[in-house]
Design a protein around this nucleic acid. Structure first.
Lengths: 347, 347
DNA sequence: ATGAAAGCGCTAACAT
DNA sequence: ATGTTAGCGCTTTCAT
């Protein structure tokens, strides 16, 4: 078990490199940092030594000394929702090139887990944070401001924290989706929405209502049921809807997971889509085209959302005192057949 | 921009806590580490000071000194595949309690990105690594052994590296799936498999062949087409199959993404499932029940795979020289209707 | 262009 | 039970 004395299988340090290259550790450090003022010849010798020893700097030590690490935290509500992982992918694509590493955490909607992630991030000396806030009960984003940690929020604004924010035009796209349904002749429409407390829910509902108003239809042409953004919730909401004496003609479901549940409820009742009931989902997921009929959905540019958030964070890192900026990305209604349209048709 | 001199909004250090509590930094350190030999009264004062100052230890400094960080790397081939994120979730569940944080990376199947993750992990001083190896061309897992980084592999063995491994009984479950199809009366069966070079592909093929042999059927009752584990690949493979003069009666598709593609190809030809062609997938995903008919699939316990990997890693951390262990988790055939069975029927 | 040396915040060995 | 102190591996003045 004990290592033979004198052998040196331990990780090489900067000192080993310096010794091997016949220079001082300061020179090694400079070469590695790519700082001007490093002799061409010395540089070469250092690089050779690095290669020979398979030297990789200790990032903890570097971070400790430099008081800043090339580390960006990403905290998400849920790793199982492809919308969020798509987002994470976008963040990574953008940040990787800038030499940052991601510290990814998810909180399953639990504010205390979320807070724990914040504390770790702080402890790790993360340079910034990209956050999809849970905004759950008891969530507290104030410490982030106090720590002066650069934050950019995605998809929702963190309650009580004014920071850079990227999201999508939820209102406009919900409006477009409902407008589309109306144009197709559907009248009794229902929105299976997310929790009432979420901004995105509020926005999507507002958009849907606008579409109804635009068309000069009575407000009660649109019914709303609030659910929880989960598959099971979508199932139950749809079940309940289909149990009513008067079945809706069309549903707009406010996220991908609930759409799955709603679809199952429809199938179990042996209803045909779109003849018996038309369906439009939010989030265009890989499975949308595997369904029959394929699903019409509001496509949210998840990856681009992530990329935008990342570049916003990079900007802020460069200019910490800048006033918070909001950017809104456009969603796109991807028309397929579940809404009752012929493929490609977009009235 | 410049901070007023004398003010102290900077992060509190252990020294600030010590001062406020009227003890030495060593005592603070001991209290925080929960080490015996800390006076009850001193302990209380320290904790109060920590709370008052909102002190959080600098993890870089701690890691530097202790030469070990409570950090576990997880590197995955793909963040968009729910199988892998389910796995990550399982890992986190298990490791979180043990006080570890995850450093999650994905490589999109690219060995160089994979290697970069390894280097970062090493640089960060990660205590261990949970790896789903890409095993792509040029992938080299040798450095991991050289660094003596505890590794546990999941789903596939890293080429050239003998480490702890968790995977599923791919062979047995493929065999069961095909047996099921045969029992249902299907004869011309095709397996849309992953890349030939992958162990999982080899295993699943072997299992499928065994089922055919078990049933006393001629070997050519089972055809195989190799694809790439992606949606598009599944689509193309199925397209090609359906273009043949003699259409297969049933397909087993070797992962969730390819199943999506295959389904789309089937729908586009207006074929009915399971009357015209029966379908069994690998990976039981949330969308399986939203399909009509709902999908019969080999359910892989992704989360449990992750949890098992994590606990294996914890074991190894405790006992580094232990001989590598393999654990195999059972898959379960989730029978629904796409295979032609009546729900619940399992011949 | 290069080196010597201070010290980042913490833990652990040693002293009391 | 508690304090003093020596570094962990690195970056960064300050000399030269």
């Amino acid at each position: 078990m004990a290592r033979a004395r004198g052998s040196k299988p331990a990780r090489p340090t900067i000192r080993d490199v310096a010794e091997k290259a016949g220079v001082s550790i300061a020179t090694v450090s400079r070469v590695l940092a790519g700082i001007a003022g490093a002799g061409a010849e010395a540089k070469e010798r250092v690089l050779a030594a690095v290669e020979a020893l398979q030297y990789h700097p200790d990032l903890s030590a570097r971070g400790l000394r430099a008081r800043q690490r090339k580390l960006i935290g990403v905290v998400l509500p849920d790793l199982q929702n492809p919308f969020f992982t798509g987002l994470a992918q976008g963040v990574e694509e953008e940040l990787c090139d800038a030499g940052f590493t991601l510290l990814l955490g998810h909180c399953d909607g639990k504010p205390d887990r979320e807070r724990r992630h914040f504390e770790v991030l702080r402890g790790e000396g993360a340079a910034g944070l990209i956050l999809v806030p849970s905004n759950g009960p008891g969530a507290d984003y104030a410490p982030l401001a106090q720590w002066e940690l650069p934050v950019v929020a995605v998809d929702r604004a963190p309650r009580g924290l004014d920071v850079d924010l990227v999201n999508t035009d939820n209102r406009a796209s919900a409006r477009e989706a409902v407008r589309h349904l109306i144009a197709l002749g559907h009248r009794e429409i229902v929105l299976i929405n997310g929790p009432e407390a979420f901004d995105v829910s509020v926005e999507r509902l507002a958009g849907a209502r606008e579409a109804v108003a635009d068309a000069g239809l009575p407000p009660d042409s649109l019914a709303v049921v609030h659910s929880d953004f989960h598959q099971d919730g979508g199932f139950k909401a749809m079940e309940q809807l289909l149990g009513r004496p008067q079945r809706p003609h069309a549903v707009l479901v406010a996220n991908n997971l609930m759409t799955l549940g709603a679809l199952q409820a429809i199938h179990e009742r042996r209803l045909r889509i779109p003849e018996d009931i038309a369906v439009v989902g939010f989030d265009d997921m890989p499975w949308a085209t595997a369904l029959w009929p394929p699903l019409t959905a509001v496509a949210q540019p998840a990856t681009e959302l992530g990329r935008t958030a990342a570049s916003l964070l990079l900007d802020r890192l460069a200019e910490p005192r800048r006033v918070p900026r909001h950017v809104i990305l456009r969603n796109r209604l991807q028309v397929r057949a579940s809404c009752g349209a012929r493929a490609g048709q977009n009235p």
